[in-house]
């Protein structure tokens, strides 16, 4: 491999990038990484796309599990629709099961979905405020709102576990549905963590002056969370 010396740094010798860089006040991640926000953003955007890609595989497999078990209806136990009192069906604990298993309320997933979408929209608002170099509160305000909506979604999701009309042992539908809920909850919690960071950092003015890149990353992820939550909510709600 042919190497020539780097042109753009010939004026100050080879030590350019070994200089001790003092912290830059106000910038995202001051001084910690010695590269421009643009360079870092390029990496992080690719990272988040790849992460979403990996998460998409999980989502697809979850939905596959749903439709596969629903179609297969192994032993008539998708939702025990054929389990009458005389059919001697038993659930996972060996107790008699008379079907069909009650459907989960459609409202919880719909509310969670709406909250996740609203939360994502607020992150979007925070991003555009950061992009147009608006005042600090124009970024931190929507960030706080997004966080609040996300927490609300988490609360509703936890609440849904309390009021489900079935338990995990009640066959295929119950199993996959609860898995969807768990998966949604995990995603919402992750997003809640990220939004907490968005809010505290926005409040510290880290996203002022055009340093919107990280907010954009969070918006991308927030939109993905809204999408995946919606997919699970719709599949779980309307394709019993």
């Amino acid at each position: 491999m042919s190497l020539t010396t780097s042109e753009h740094e010939s004026t100050d010798g080879g030590e350019h990038h070994h200089e001790y860089l003092p912290a830059v006040e106000g910038a995202e991640n001051p001084g910690g990484e010695h590269e421009s926000a643009g360079e870092r953003d390029k990496k992080e955007r690719l990272m988040i796309w790849l992460f979403i890609g990996g998460d998409l595989v999980i989502l697809i497999l979850e939905v596959f599990a749903w439709f596969y078990l629903r179609t297969l209806d192994s032993n008539g136990m998708w939702n025990a629709a054929k389990c009458t009192a005389s059919a001697n069906c038993v659930d996972g604990l060996g107790n008699p099961l008379i079907g069909p298993v009650a459907k989960a309320s459609i409202w919880h997933p719909m509310i969670i979905m709406s909250l996740a979408i609203i939360s994502a929209l607020f992150v979007w608002a925070a991003e555009s405020a950061s992009r147009r170099k608006a005042a600090k509160s124009a970024v931190s305000g929507p960030a706080l709102a997004a966080l609040v909506f996300m927490i609300a979604a988490i609360v509703v999701q936890i609440l849904q576990f309390q009021v489900l009309p079935f338990t995990t042992v009640d066959g295929g539908y119950a199993s996959v549905y609860e898995f969807f809920m768990g998966s949604t909850l995990a995603h919402l919690l992750l997003m809640g963590f990220i939004l907490t960071g968005l809010w505290t950092r926005a409040a510290k003015g880290r996203y002022q002056g055009g340093t919107f890149h990280r907010v954009r990353i969070m918006r991308m992820f927030g939109v993905w969370i809204a999408i995946s939550t919606s997919v699970l909510a719709i599949v779980g709600g309307f394709f019993v």
Binding site: Y68, L69, S74, M77, G92, T168, V169, G172, S175, G182
Partner: peptide
């Protein structure tokens, strides 16, 4: 893990799951 520790039935044919899954 959910099959084992919470009693779901993804992979238990008798309970509406499938080993093929």
């Amino acid at each position: 893990i959910t099959d084992r520790a919470t009693g779901t039935s993804f992979f238990v044919n008798q309970l509406g799951g499938a080993g093929w899954l």
